[in-house]
């Protein structure tokens, strides 16, 4: 009995010692490594990619490719953006980038006065090169070095071609675009109209809207009231397609309509996958991201001077609902 109790006491003591030492070890060994402090800026060039939207499939692809390329080239790249195409924040980002004296700015073009002022005056003042990506702003107005992205005029044409192929040469087409018509939308519009005008039986209706969702809804309602026998819808600004399709869906079956848009809005591809829309113009975001970083780095290193001011055009193609998985 006595031996047993001594034995038990010793066992208990050992167990206690074990747990105490384990606990002590975990207390005194869990030193977290702080990020290493460095004295000098690490890479030669600091680039910023500024977009109006982030977290959309299109811009995610651009960003991923750009970061990948930057890593490959050994330059630092940050992506600044905001949600829901907030223009003021976008412009602020641009301004901060300029004032922060980054080495190069890759920016989604915005055809507005403030944007042009910033790129033309301030960026030049600080001597910062700017490359527009995806959406262009004419060089004369923005003093951009070059443009990397799709040929928007051609994109408009291709959409129109697809429409003709699908619908035939007669019908009413509603084209929705922003009332503050940006350069890229202008180009797309021009592309579409130039083609559609060749077919006299095709009637074109313009619907103007803004980026705000409720306004898109209102405009859609208006145009549906006005044009009761529309056959096709084209959203020039891909950001508006979600609200538009939703609104159409409230009134009619969506499937009889021919609905087209571009892939640079957050809802375009999901809608295509659900077959709510008939076709999307797909651009090449990865190539845009990669190419823009490459060009900027080359220019900064002085390897490619001057850059082609007409821009470096990337591939586009139509993706139809029937192609979607």
């Amino acid at each position: 009995m006595r031996k047993l109790s001594i034995f038990l006491l010793i066992i208990l003591f050992i167990i206690l010692c074990y747990f105490t030492s384990v606990s002590a070890l975990s207390v005194f060994q869990s030193d977290w490594e702080l990020p290493e402090a460095i004295d000098q800026q690490q890479s030669e060039y600091r680039l910023v990619l500024i977009t109006q939207d982030i977290d959309t499939p299109f811009w995610d692809a651009v960003g991923r490719a750009a970061l990948d390329e930057a890593k490959k080239l050994g330059v630092s790249l940050e992506i600044w953006g905001n949600y829901g195409s907030h223009r003021e924040d976008f412009l602020t980002n641009l301004e901060v980038a300029i004032q922060s004296k980054v080495d190069g700015i890759i920016v989604q073009g915005l055809d507005s006065k403030e944007f042009k002022e910033l790129t033309k005056v301030k960026a030049s003042f600080y001597g910062i090169p700017i490359i527009t990506i995806a959406n262009d702003v004419p060089m004369a107005e923005s003093l951009r070095r070059t443009y990397v992205g799709s040929d928007q005029y051609k994109a408009g044409r291709m959409i129109a071609e697809q429409l003709i192929t699908d619908m035939g040469t007669a019908g009413k087409v509603v084209i929705m675009f922003n009332d503050e018509l940006e350069y890229y939308q202008e180009q797309r519009l021009a592309g579409m109209e130039d083609l559609l005008k060749q077919y006299p039986n095709i009637l074109i209706e313009h619907a103007k809207t803004s980026n705000k969702r409720d306004e898109v809804i209102t405009s859609t309602q208006d145009i549906l009231n006005k044009v009761t026998d529309a056959d096709a819808f084209i959203a020039v600004n891909a950001n508006t397609i979600g609200a538009m399709v939703q609104e159409i869906g409230k009134r009619y079956q969506v499937s009889p309509f021919y609905i087209y848009t571009f892939d640079d809005g957050p809802e375009a591809i999901p809608l295509l996958e659900k077959r709510m829309i008939d076709g999307v113009l797909r651009q090449s975001p990865e190539i845009m991201g990669r190419k823009s970083v490459e060009l900027m780095t080359d220019w900064l290193k002085g390897e490619t001077i001057p850059l082609d001011s007409d821009g470096y055009l990337t591939e586009i193609h139509i993706m139809k609902a029937t192609d979607a998985p």
């Binding site: 290493e36 004295d39 922060s100 980054v102």
Partner: peptide, 17 residues
């Protein structure tokens, strides 16, 4: 002096700002 691997970019921007 607060520069480290992670805030390098932002800090450089900051200094330049």
């Amino acid at each position: 002096h607060l520069r480290n691997e992670i805030n390098d970019f932002t800090l450089t921007n900051y200094i330049h700002l």
